[in-house]
Design a protein around this nucleic acid. Structure first.
Lengths: 200, 200
DNA sequence: GTCTATAGGTAGATAGAC
DNA sequence: GTCTATCTACCTATAGAC
């Protein structure tokens, strides 16, 4: 038995929204790509916005648990960093449209986007991460850096290349495969950069 | 003497395009904000796209020269880094909509966007920057890092916070003034992180 | 140069036959 | 549940009066 029509719509909508963003996507785009009738979109989903919200909630459900498991494990701090960098980069390699999509929706539709996400996803517990870093500092395992800035550093180093991927590929002349390879090698670079900055 | 109508259109268009992106902006938005008649937009500019291209070229003209002057100066390498970080952060504080705008257009309209920019702006000479880093390495002034990755690190650390500013403000509860203050303090954090990673 | 009116197209959404 | 036809609203762009 194949996908139900509703499933087909959702799966297709995820793909198209990721590629083109909310504004850039038309209901016709989705119905064409899913090869179903336009009217059916409104039969299953009240409106474009309702479809978007539902897709967003489904798509976002799988991310945070993995990170949470790493953060709450009993592994050493430096190892946690390496694991998180690894998980993130692998996620982004598999979902290259995710970072620009999030940045775009975040800046054009801030409130709806954040509210929808925080309702459907366990908000990543920032204060826990902060306390984790603070703890390492007070135990003199790492230098007394600003935990906030350290989190910013980490996310910056991981996400930025995926945000400018099109320009990066054009300027450097790399193809997709080579870009992925560079990002896999970048894991170590990022961990080194982060750890060089905090090790005593 | 006040602005000419054409100037008024351009100035307004820059603002609106930056806020809403190309797709999110309507000609009506621009004419309303500029308080001029819709028809005049098409009198001065053939089409929405032509207006966009012109605005892009004008807006992009001022950026690269400053960086180029720093890069080609005879200042020590570490000082160049500090100056570049400073210039970038100050630029972004003054133009907070710039980073998300660029990311969005870059990912949705890759070719047109890059082509338009590279025609109107002296392409920032990446190979010169690479050779600059390579030179420092061969003189044993810094550790033998991958120059490509080092450039990525630098841009990542500078730009990322501005890309997620809305989420960051909402999560942290900071207001605009506090965010700017944090970014000014972040200059030193970034330079430290970068230099810690390459100093011998 | 500036305006009004409107053409021509396409978006999201609905009604109703099957 | 699925389809076609159609509505309303809004977009870009143009024509033409002033």
């Amino acid at each position: 038995m194949g996908e139900t029509t509703k499933q087909k719509i959702i799966n297709t909508a995820i793909k198209i929204f990721l590629e083109k963003g909310y504004n850039g996507t038309t209901m016709r785009d989705i119905s064409n790509a899913a090869q179903i009738n336009k009217g059916l979109l409104h039969y299953y989903f009240k409106s474009k916005n309702a479809l978007f919200v539902e897709v967003l909630q489904i798509g976002a459900k799988d991310f945070p648990p993995k990170l949470d498991r790493i953060l709450h494990s009993d592994k050493p701090f430096f190892e946690k960093i390496a694991l998180i960098v690894d998980q993130y980069i692998e996620l982004l390699i598999k979902n290259p449209h995710l970072p620009p999509f999030i940045i775009n929706e975040l800046n054009q539709n801030t409130d709806v986007f954040i509210d929808t996400l925080s309702k459907s996803v366990d908000t990543p517990n920032i204060s826990f991460v902060l306390s984790l870093i603070q703890d390492e500092i007070s135990k003199a395992h790492i230098k007394p850096v600003d935990p906030f800035q350290f989190i910013l550093d980490t996310l910056s180093l991981i996400l930025y290349p995926f945000l400018v991927k099109p320009a990066f590929k054009k300027i450097s002349g790399l193809n997709d495969e080579q870009f992925i390879d560079l990002m896999k090698r970048r894991k170590k670079t990022i961990v080194d950069t982060l750890i060089n900055n905090i090790k005593i």
